[in-house]
Amino acid sequence: MHSRVDVAVMIGSGVPATFKARGRRVCWVVLVNGERRGTAFASRGEALECQAAWMAQLAKGQAA
């Protein structure tokens, strides 16, 4: 099975309260097959790093 790993931006009401308390209005999340995985990230770069880790983990599982 081929898995899809995406990075999505969340704006407004989707942003966690802890981010809003620090004045952040956006965050990024990682979606695996359309389902959110893990935490929200303050930067797109952090989310992309998490995406790469998910893709590597899934590739290992498919190679087995």
Rank of each mutant, 00 (worst) to 15 (best):
F41A: 06
V29P: 07
N33H: 02
M55N: 09
F19L: 11
M10C: 03
W28P: 00
G12A: 08
R25G: 08
V7I: 04
A42T: 06
V32M: 02
G38L: 04
A40V: 07
G23F: 05
T39V: 10
V15T: 07
V32T: 01
C50D: 14
R22K: 13
G23L: 07
F41G: 05
A17D: 14
A42Q: 10
L58H: 09
G14M: 12
R24M: 10
R22L: 09
G14L: 11
R25L: 08
A59L: 14
R37I: 01
V15H: 13
R25S: 11
M10L: 14
M1Y: 06
L48F: 05
T18F: 12
A56I: 03
E35N: 02
G14D: 09
W28T: 00
A56N: 11
F41T: 00
A40Y: 15
R25H: 14
Q62H: 12
R44Y: 13
M1T: 01
A56D: 15
W54K: 02
S13D: 13
K60P: 05
V26E: 13
G12Q: 10
S43Y: 03
L31S: 02
R36C: 07
H2W: 12
K20F: 09
Q57D: 14
C27A: 08
E49T: 05
A17M: 07
R37Y: 03
V29Y: 11
V29A: 11
G38C: 08
V5M: 03
A53G: 00
T18K: 13
E49A: 11
N33T: 00
V5F: 05
C27I: 01
A56V: 05
W28H: 10
C50T: 03
R37C: 10
W28S: 02
T39E: 15
R24T: 01
R4T: 08
A47I: 00
G34V: 00
T18C: 12
V29D: 11
C50V: 05
F41Q: 09
G38N: 04
V5I: 05
V7S: 03
A64C: 14
G61E: 13
Q51G: 06
Q62I: 02
G34T: 01
A47F: 04
A59S: 15
S13Q: 09
A56S: 14
M10E: 14
A59N: 15
A63V: 03
